[in-house]
Amino acid sequence: MSRLQGPSSLKRKQPDSNSPLDSLSEQERVVYNVIKSKQDLGIWSKDLKRETKLLDNMFGKCIKTLQSKKLIKEVATKNKGRKHLMAAEFEPSKEITGGNWYLDGNLDTEFINLLKDQCVKLIYKMKVATLEGISDTIRRSGIFKVEFTSQQIEEIVRALVLDNEIVEVKSNGMEEFDCIPIGKVCYKCASKGGKAEPRIGAMASIPCGVCPRISVCAPDGVISPKTCIYYEKWLDF
């Protein structure tokens, strides 16, 4: 499913006959086996230590040796700051990297926003679009070097709905929905002018609506509407 990896079985290399494995000490072998058994999930170093029940210095030595022999590697995960280990022949699974949208353990926001922008522009041009329509057009446009699965596009479109940049509508088979079957879920831009901010309500457009200290504000309190700095700024024309 992922653009980064195929089924894990394909990636497993057969170790060579005279592999560094043979030269491992008993402790090193234990550590290696535990790491390897976790396959593409890998293991957090602290968990590994608990499982192998080795002493600190011994544990550190084992890891160093295994790493120098390139039998294991450290991988970046969504839980930054944690030392995560994996047998060299595996690629980190989606579950630990955070999935398709992660790059070296970081959410690839730049890439996501780029894709989001393209989707909005596309939907705006198409007036109404189905999920398949969006997927197809993106594929054909060639803007992105990578191929997206329809699930990835769906995730992006859903996020755009949450952003209130596009809205979900059902086709009624008329006018703009002309060539879309009745009842099919489509997407269209929320505002007539393409990208737009959500409407700001009555409460959100006054200082009290966005005030983080409203719970401690009282008529004659330390924070009061008479002395409020937000009001001062708001009413300073």
Binding site: P198, R199, I200, G201, A202, A204, G209, V210
Partner: peptide, 11 residues
Amino acid sequence: NEEVESIVLKR
């Protein structure tokens, strides 16, 4: 919903 959401957005 719209009213409350816009408070969340701004705050």
